[in-house]
Amino acid sequence: MSAETRPQPRLVPHDGADSLARDTARRVLEVLESAQDERGEATLLLTGGSMGTRVVEELANHGDAPVVDWSRVNVWWSDERFLPGADPERNGVQAADVWDDTLELTWDRVHPVAGSDEIDTVDAAAEDYREELAAAAEQEGSVTGLPRFDVALLSLGPDTHVASLFPGRQDVLRTDASVFAVTDSPKPPPARVTMSLEAVNSADRVWLLVSGAAKAEALAAIRRPAVTPVEAPGSAARGTRETLWLVTEDALPGVPEDPDRHRG
């Protein structure tokens, strides 16, 4: 499905970070419940960053969390820092810390990226994650090499990056691998594992989290007419069924108001 045939992003403002985290958690719960009603399981693609972690915390503590059978939820990460497995800077560790034991996940369904103390190189970690994805896809009967992602959460960086796909780099356009290594990230640490934009965009729903005045320029950049994925990777994040930009109002100055902003 080309970007032109996908639904256009819809901007949904919130009055602050707390409201954004709560609303996103509520939306995630609705999607997971619906997916389980449809096919018995659900799959969530998580992101890092402070807002991504806050959403996970809200999921764990939300009053409606029990509507989801968490033992049948599959969890993946769109990117990860290549650090030791228990390093607190890793996205998976931050999520686990706020998830704790509140939600009864089946740990065989939770898929962290291998850490630097578990596998020799970042390239090997990327290959290992590709193989995990392919195995899950085969089990589902998918021929794409990817399992079905019901919803992918992404955080927009102040430079417009998403996952570990940074502006000004041609690897934003890579289609030869669903997961690959980044060895020279402009943000520390330099070694990371990331899903390709194509892999992220295979999700039914892609929701971009944008919180804080520091993200206002990035949000304006991804909304510029004719902006390219290389110029602003976040501009090209698109779900097959839905794309939401879930933003705080302090990130909105200078951004044209979306005509559908009051619908969501």
Results as ranks from 00 to 15, higher is better:
residue 209 L to T: 00
residue 251 A to P: 08
residue 177 A to T: 04
residue 75 V to P: 05
residue 65 A to D: 11
residue 158 P to F: 09
residue 157 G to M: 02
residue 147 P to M: 10
residue 188 P to H: 04
residue 251 A to V: 09
residue 29 L to F: 07
residue 14 H to G: 01
residue 102 T to H: 15
residue 193 V to E: 02
residue 104 E to R: 13
residue 237 A to H: 05
residue 178 S to A: 14
residue 251 A to W: 07
residue 189 P to R: 06
residue 15 D to A: 11
residue 201 N to G: 01
residue 106 T to H: 15
residue 209 L to Y: 00
residue 1 M to H: 13
residue 197 L to K: 04
residue 190 P to L: 10
residue 244 L to K: 01
residue 201 N to C: 03
residue 117 D to V: 09
residue 82 F to G: 05
residue 187 K to H: 09
residue 193 V to G: 05
residue 40 G to P: 11
residue 227 V to Q: 00
residue 241 R to M: 11
residue 57 E to I: 10
residue 81 R to I: 00
residue 17 A to Q: 09
residue 194 T to H: 03
residue 224 R to K: 15
residue 182 V to P: 00
residue 155 S to R: 02
residue 211 S to V: 15
residue 183 T to P: 01
residue 67 V to Q: 13
residue 214 A to I: 12
residue 128 D to I: 02
residue 237 A to W: 08
residue 54 R to E: 11
residue 53 T to D: 03
residue 246 L to W: 06
residue 57 E to N: 15
residue 19 S to E: 13
residue 24 T to H: 04
residue 155 S to N: 09
residue 220 A to D: 06
residue 259 P to R: 12
residue 61 N to K: 15
residue 9 P to R: 01
residue 260 D to I: 08
residue 2 S to V: 15
residue 27 R to S: 13
residue 98 V to Y: 04
residue 69 D to M: 06
residue 248 T to V: 01
residue 245 W to C: 05
residue 245 W to M: 11
residue 13 P to Q: 07
residue 187 K to E: 07
residue 38 E to I: 13
residue 106 T to F: 09
residue 213 A to G: 14
residue 31 V to M: 10
residue 30 E to C: 12
residue 82 F to Q: 06
residue 121 T to C: 01
residue 58 E to N: 09
residue 14 H to W: 13
residue 183 T to C: 03
residue 201 N to F: 02
residue 227 V to F: 00
residue 188 P to M: 07
residue 68 V to D: 13
residue 263 R to P: 14
residue 197 L to F: 03
residue 129 Y to V: 06
residue 249 E to P: 03
residue 225 P to M: 05
residue 244 L to F: 09
residue 218 A to P: 08
residue 171 D to P: 07
residue 201 N to I: 08
residue 152 A to W: 05
residue 131 E to I: 10
residue 137 A to W: 08
residue 96 A to F: 10
residue 53 T to Y: 00
residue 84 P to R: 04
residue 124 A to C: 00
residue 65 A to K: 13
residue 236 A to P: 06
residue 257 E to H: 10
residue 49 G to T: 00
residue 91 N to S: 07
residue 83 L to E: 07
residue 9 P to T: 06
residue 118 E to D: 10
residue 190 P to E: 13
residue 124 A to G: 03
residue 19 S to L: 11
residue 175 T to I: 02
residue 106 T to L: 14
residue 210 V to I: 12
residue 206 V to Q: 06
residue 134 A to H: 10
residue 142 S to R: 13
residue 217 E to P: 13
residue 93 V to Y: 03
residue 25 A to C: 06
